[in-house]
């Protein structure tokens, strides 16, 4: 077979625009997802049975349904109840809500894995639950939460390619647009794989750096 190098040269900068959108969508979703996930994760550790149940039900729903359906729900179903978002923000919202559920589990697991003696020791010097969480449990949990959270963010970046189905002009969609005009699937999909691979490698490297810089004990 022959590789159409001319198209590769033309496509590379076009795909870069898509890659920028992928980065934007992923970064926004990661920030919102981490925030919502942290809040939900902490809620699932709270004393309130209602809060715990709400989070458990939410996590169960997200885990029990395909992301693609969640994206369709946000994009097509929300307008029915009067919430109209463009493709970009619908995509960000869908990815954020999805990531939040997994982040919540990481936070709950990370804090829950800390030895019970830590809470007891903090209690015995008169700390209240909020103080125990902030000063004793979370500082110890951060470190062990970095690797699983990195995995979640990596999934999130990969999952963002699904947003092509609602016409978010991210990396995958940009590639498809070129393919539909020039019919060069091999070149473009290979190029797409390279782009994603580089993005994700950079992300893993970043995570290792963060982990390395966290205080050790």
């Amino acid at each position: 077979m022959t590789i159409d190098w001319a198209i590769v040269g033309k496509a590379a900068p076009l795909l870069l625009e898509g890659a920028v959108v992928t980065l934007q969508v992923s970064a926004l979703s990661a920030i919102i997802g981490l925030f919502l996930g942290a809040v939900s994760g902490l809620a699932s550790l709270s004393q309130s049975a209602l809060l715990r149940w709400v989070v458990a039900a939410y996590v169960d729903f997200i885990r029990g349904t395909p992301l693609l359906i969640q994206i369709f729900l946000v994009f097509f179903a929300l307008p029915v109840i009067g919430i109209r978002l463009d493709e970009f923000w619908a995509g960000v919202l869908a990815l954020s809500l999805n990531a939040a559920a997994f982040v919540a589990e990481v936070v709950r697991g990370g804090v829950g894995a800390i030895e019970k003696g830590q809470t007891e020791a903090a209690r015995s010097i008169g700390m209240k639950n909020g103080q125990i969480l902030v000063y004793i449990l979370l500082p110890q949990a951060y470190r062990q939460m970095v690797p699983p959270l990195t995995n979640e963010i990596i999934s999130l970046v990969k999952n963002s390619s699904l947003l092509s189905v609602i016409s978010v002009y991210e990396l995958t969609r940009a590639g498809q647009a070129i393919i539909s005009i020039h019919f060069v699937p091999f070149e473009i999909y290979t190029l797409l794989a390279v782009y994603y691979y580089v993005l994700l490698k950079a992300l893993s490297w970043l995570s290792r750096e963060v982990e390395r810089r966290l205080p050790q004990w």
């Binding site: 830590q118 015995s124 008169g126 004793i136 110890q140």
Partner: peptide, 15 residues
Amino acid sequence: RRHFGFVFQRFNLFP
């Protein structure tokens, strides 16, 4: 609770 000083078998220091 803070009026009782409690010393644990396994120390339970904050690492």
